[in-house]
């Protein structure tokens, strides 16, 4: 048994999905934490959220270690997408003649059967998301050596109602994808034992609801004007004590 065989069997392919999935779950915690710093605007003097968020974003954006980790993240996402699509199409061939009557939701949850569809929706959202933030920021960094004011970029991006709606739909897709994917990854990794399966289900459900909700709160807050605009917040940071 060599490593290639080990990761190309039906279980091996699932291991690739589970390992990259757990990696992406961990990434989402960091992503969510850093972006949620904007909400410090609600808990302190004006400019506190702006300063904390810009500081953390700049630290991550200019740090060579996190830039290398970014390559790993990209590889993880691509592996998860490619293996996921391959499994989706491969599994489809395993029942050449379909049933006339389908079981529907009698024996399984709709979202557990729709991971391919939910994943594709997340991928479409991801392309738009990278186009909105990652691409322009990295481009400017490359050309001028300075990152964009990401708080301002968020504020401007989330002025459009359709963008806000697409982001909310993307986060809902993510929530359902995680609702199955979180526990499923641990099951595939052989860790969802009788003793831990309840705990994993519980943590997975909380994670799948809380993280997407925090993400949804960002476009919604900017659109509804619940956060100060970048100019005011930036000006206020000048008067904040270090």
């Amino acid at each position: 048994m060599n490593w290639k065989q080990a990761f190309t069997s039906s279980i091996g392919k699932k291991l690739v999905m589970a390992l990259t999935g757990v990696f992406l779950i961990l990434f989402l915690i960091v992503h969510c934490y850093v972006n949620a710093l904007v909400f410090l605007e609600w808990f302190g003097p004006l400019g506190r959220g702006y300063k904390a968020y810009e500081g953390a974003a700049h630290f991550l954006g200019s740090n060579p270690l996190t830039r290398i980790a970014e390559i790993g993240l990209l590889a993880g996402i691509i592996l998860h997408i490619v293996q996921g699509l391959m499994l989706f199409f491969d599994n489809k061939t395993k029942r050449p003649v379909d049933y006339n009557v389908h079981p529907g939701n009698k024996s399984s949850k709709w979202y557990s059967r729709s991971m391919g569809l939910l994943g594709t929706l997340i991928l479409l959202f991801l392309v738009l998301h990278l186009y909105h933030f990652w691409v322009p920021n990295r481009y400017q960094q490359l050309v001028t050596g300075h990152e964009k004011d990401l708080y301002l970029l968020m504020e401007l991006t989330f002025k459009d109602l359709w963008v806000v709606i697409v982001y909310i739909l993307g986060c809902i897709s993510l929530a359902y994808h995680l609702l199955h994917g979180f526990w499923s990854a641990f099951q595939t990794l052989g860790l969802s034992t009788k003793k831990y399966t309840g705990l994993l289900r519980c943590v997975g459900t909380v994670y799948s609801i809380v993280i997407p909700l925090i993400f949804i709160a960002m476009p919604l807050s900017f659109y509804l004007g619940l956060l100060p605009d970048a100019e005011t917040a930036r000006a206020a940071t000048q008067t904040l004590a270090h």
Binding site: S10, I11, K13, K14, L87, D90, N91, K94, R95, P103, K106, S107, S108, K109, S112, R113, M115, H180, W183, S184, Q187, T188
Partner: peptide, 15 residues
């Protein structure tokens, strides 16, 4: 034999 991979939908256990 041509069986598919597991998606952990748990339909098997239910049936």
């Amino acid at each position: 034999e041509g069986f598919g991979a597991c998606t952990n939908t748990m339909a098997c256990e239910a049936e």
